[in-house]
Amino acid sequence: MNETLITPDLVMAVPLEHYIAVSAILFSIGIIGVLMRRNLIVMFLSIELMLNSVNLLAVAFSIYHNDSNAQAFVFFIMVVAAAEIAVGLAMLVMIYRNIRTIDIDALKQLKW
């Protein structure tokens, strides 16, 4: 862990505040997307957006703090996100086959 990270200058060229601002904007867009849209696919997209904003932030902090752990995490997150999308889309297909819509408000069966 202690070995110095080989940091690309290109990354360091942009100040940390900008990364934070961008990811905050991305994250907000994601939240708004999830809350406002009713289409499940769009909601999925928004969730991915939120995930990626966090990824971006993690990478940025990793470099500025000279700690590579975060980058490893980012890979984990990407892998898990991929798996999640696969499962999620499969469920989505099933939902569509069953109720012929992917409108989120049509799904009230969670309440017994």
Partner: peptide
Amino acid sequence: LQNGHISFYLFAMV
């Protein structure tokens, strides 16, 4: 509170 609307849950979560 648990009215079954996912969007409501999400809103509450946020």
